[in-house]
Simulated scan of single mutants.
Amino acid sequence: MYQDNKIALLIDCDNVSYKSIEGVIDELSKYGKVNIRHAYGNWKSESMKGWEEKLHPHAIKPIQQFAYTKGKNATDAAMIIDAMDMLYTQDLEAFALMTSDSDFTPLVMRILSNGITVYGFGEKKTPMPFVKACSQFIYTENLEETDETEEIQGEANAKKNRNQLRQDTGLVKLLRTAVEHSADENGWSHLGRVGEYISNKTSFSPVNYGYKKLGELIRACELFQIEMKHDNSVMYIKDIRKS
């Protein structure tokens, strides 16, 4: 059960904005409990003020890292060392790395080799090797808190419409392939199995397209015939080209 999963959240405060931390924690709550919450950086720096205000409300433990040598990133080293310690001393089902730095790509691959899930959260500037290495990656701009007056407009701007989704050839290919490989003899695919196939192959998340759930994105793209079963609680889909 997801609710019992233990997750360690490690935050590289030098390379990601504090504005999305609420969204990150909310997203991780779908997959389990964030038992460990560590934020790394030089807390004596003025640039950390925004992050400092987020520590207490979200029970995040600050880990102090001094810049001993100019040009050397002590934060990266501390996060990597702590992650490896946790890998062997903590009973964790997943790690969440909040960073836009591709230097953590080898760490992600090492954690994955132990059969542990890695959720990545970073800004849109994050290099693709890190994005693709994660089990799932979400751009933090899609999770940033907005003013109440801007909330509706912000959601509209973030959500991709039917035409935009269809013009994304990589997305269309991924969805069609997942449905094809998950289909029964009649061509129908259980949405849960489609999601499992996608998560085993890529770092895809519907959040990056403005949708909270895969089913919402499936409805929006209008590429599949949809049938609800089991008292309207389970979605089955079929490629409209084969209907």
Results as ranks from 00 to 15, higher is better:
residue 88 Y to E: 08
residue 45 S to H: 10
residue 52 E to N: 06
residue 56 H to P: 14
residue 95 F to M: 10
residue 29 S to W: 03
residue 74 A to Q: 03
residue 44 K to E: 15
residue 42 N to I: 00
residue 115 G to I: 03
residue 81 I to A: 01
residue 41 G to P: 06
residue 63 I to G: 09
residue 85 D to S: 15
residue 41 G to Q: 04
residue 82 D to A: 13
residue 51 W to T: 15
residue 121 F to S: 03
residue 26 D to R: 13
residue 139 Y to D: 01
residue 140 T to W: 03
residue 135 S to C: 02
residue 108 V to F: 06
residue 35 N to F: 06
residue 117 T to L: 07
residue 61 K to G: 07
residue 79 M to Y: 08
residue 51 W to V: 12
residue 29 S to A: 12
residue 131 V to P: 02
residue 35 N to T: 15
residue 55 L to W: 10
residue 56 H to G: 08
residue 63 I to D: 07
residue 97 L to Q: 03
residue 75 T to A: 14
residue 48 M to A: 13
residue 53 E to R: 14
residue 116 I to S: 00
residue 134 C to Y: 03
residue 44 K to W: 14
residue 71 G to S: 11
residue 107 L to S: 02
residue 44 K to N: 14
residue 105 T to K: 06
residue 112 L to G: 09
residue 81 I to W: 02
residue 127 P to Y: 04
residue 88 Y to H: 12
residue 125 K to Y: 02
residue 83 A to Q: 07
residue 57 P to G: 10
residue 70 K to L: 11
residue 40 Y to P: 00
residue 68 Y to P: 13
residue 94 A to W: 06
residue 76 D to W: 08
residue 141 E to T: 13
residue 93 E to A: 09
residue 67 A to F: 10
residue 39 A to L: 00
residue 103 D to N: 14
residue 85 D to H: 09
residue 97 L to R: 01
residue 92 L to R: 05
residue 68 Y to F: 15
residue 54 K to N: 10
residue 53 E to F: 12
residue 103 D to K: 06
residue 70 K to Q: 08
residue 41 G to E: 04
residue 31 Y to Q: 08
residue 43 W to E: 06
residue 119 Y to D: 05
residue 123 E to D: 13
residue 30 K to S: 11
residue 62 P to E: 02
residue 42 N to V: 00
residue 112 L to W: 10
residue 119 Y to W: 07
residue 59 A to I: 11
residue 131 V to I: 09
residue 70 K to Y: 12
residue 28 L to K: 02
residue 87 L to G: 02
residue 73 N to L: 04
residue 87 L to M: 05
residue 26 D to M: 07
residue 48 M to H: 07
residue 50 G to S: 03
residue 102 S to K: 14
residue 132 K to N: 14
residue 121 F to K: 07
residue 137 F to W: 00
residue 130 F to Q: 04
residue 34 V to C: 10
residue 42 N to G: 02
